[in-house]
Amino acid sequence: MSSSHGEKRPKGGGKFTLCSSVVAKCGTESKNLCRNRLYEYDDDETWNDVLHDVLEGEDFTLHKTDTVNAVVADKLMGTITFTPDMEEPIRIVKEFDQTLKSVNRDKDVHCDVTFRVGKEGKLVHVHKYVLASRSPVFDAMLYGDLAESDDIIVPDIEPSSFDALLRYLYCDDISFTPDTVTSVLYAADKYGVDDLVTKIKSYLDQNITNETVLTVLESAKLFNLEDLLQKCEDFIASDPFPVLQSSSALEITKETLTYIISLDSLVMDELDIYHFLIKWTENQCDKVGIEKTDPNIRAMMGDLIYLIRFPFMNLESFAKDVCNRDILNAQEKLNLQQVIVGNLDKTSTKFKFEKRICKTFCVLPGESPRYMGVWSYRRNLEDCIEFT
C-alpha cells in the first residue's frame, strides 16, 4: 500500500515510542484498533511489525484491498495520520525544537504535575504522559498504586540539571556542561533514564583530558563505573603534574584527593605530592575563612597527612622542605628523620611505608618541573629506572 497524496509520512531515523491508534477499513466496515499502550521500534522495522503488535489478540482479518490508517503520536509532538506501506521501514524522527514548542512546556500549557526542585523548591510544571513514557520510575511515581497526588519534592537535584533531564525526556536533546555532567548523570540514574545514563557514560569516557579527568573521576566513583574509574586512575597516575595543575584540581573533594594520593601507581615524587596537599588545604582554608597558619593547615588536612610517604624522601629534602614548617609536629619530624636514616622502626609512626610502584616502565622524577614523556633526573635522588 502506498501513501496517499498530501499525507504526512514519517521521516528520519532512530528509536521512538509509538502510542498507537490504528484504524483498519474492510470495505465499508472500519475497525478502530487503538491501544492504550506504548510500542518501541527501531527504524529498520516495518509497519507490518507495528500492525502485528496492534492486532495481537484481535479477531480481525485484513485483505489485500483493505487499507490501514495509522495515527502516530510521538511525545506529544502532535499526530501524524497516513496510510503506511506495510513493507516500508519505519522512519520517524523527533523534531527537537518543534517538539518542545508544540507541548508548550515553558508556558505550562496542559501541564498536569508540578515538581518543587532544588533547595529553593523552584516550581517546574510538566506533563505526566511525557515523563511516564520515558522513565519507569516516573511511570510508577505518577501512575502506580502509590502515585503521588501533591507536588513532588526533589531537593537533591538543582533546577538546571532537572531541566537538562526534562529536555532529554521531551525531545532527546542532551544538554550539560563539564560542571553539570555529574548532576545530570545523577538525575538520569535516579529516574531510570538508562539511555541517557549510557550516553553520558560514553561522553565521559571519550572526554578525559587534564582539565576534565578529575570531574570524570568523581562521577565514576559516585556511580560505581569501574571501567571508567580505572581509565581515570591510569590517566592520572601516569602523568599527574598537568592534572594537579589544572584549574579544577584545587576544587576536588577531600574524598577524591584521598583516592588520588593513596594510589600506589602515582608517578610523582612524595615532596611534590606534599606541596600539592598544602596548596589544596590552603584553598580549603580560604573557602571557610580560616587563617592559613601551619597549625590550621594541619588541622584542615586531618588524616590526609598520613598518606604522604615521607619515609621515601631523602634526608636533605625532608629537612629543607618539610621541617622548615610546623605542619608536622616536633615528634613526628624527629621520628621520620630517624626512620629515613634507618634508626627507627617504621611501626613507630602512622605514616605509610608502602612504596609507590609504577604500573608501566618509567623514569623517576627529574629536573623537569613536570613529567612530559621525557627521560630526566633529579640531583637529590638516586639514578634509577624501575620495571614492574
Rank of each mutant, 00 (worst) to 15 (best):
T209S: 13
Q98C: 05
E382K: 15
H127C: 09
L55P: 00
T46E: 02
T28R: 11
K107N: 11
I385M: 11
K101T: 09
F138W: 13
I208Q: 07
D43F: 09
F223P: 04
E58R: 03
Y274S: 12
Q98G: 04
K11Q: 09
D44Y: 11
V23I: 13
K346W: 04
D97A: 06
I327V: 15
S202M: 12
F138Q: 06
V184S: 01
D272A: 14
Y377D: 13
P89D: 05
Y191C: 06
I260V: 15
V363L: 13
E382T: 14
L250R: 09
S161P: 00
D172L: 09
K287G: 04
D345L: 07
E386N: 02
Y306I: 10
D42C: 04
F115K: 06
S247V: 11
L123I: 11
E226C: 02
I252T: 08
V181H: 00
V113M: 02
R378E: 15
T79Y: 07
E29W: 01
V339H: 06
H125M: 08
D383E: 13
M77G: 15
Y306N: 15
C26V: 14
F351Q: 12
T46L: 07
Y259D: 12
L169G: 07
T83D: 00
E251V: 00
T253E: 14
V93D: 12
T388F: 08
Q245L: 13
K231C: 06
Y186F: 13
I305P: 05
V184W: 02
G192Y: 07
E158S: 07
T180P: 05
R356M: 06
V124M: 15
H125A: 02
I90C: 01
V341F: 08
Y41V: 09
N36I: 10
C362L: 03
V117H: 03
T17M: 07
S20W: 05
K199T: 08
V341S: 15
R309P: 15
V23A: 01
S30L: 10
Y39S: 09
V54H: 02
H127W: 09
V363M: 15
V137K: 11
P155C: 08
E95S: 01
V243L: 04
Q338I: 06
V154P: 01
V68I: 15
T388C: 07
L18R: 01
P84Y: 02
V103N: 12
K122L: 07
L214C: 10
T67W: 01
Y306R: 14
T83A: 00
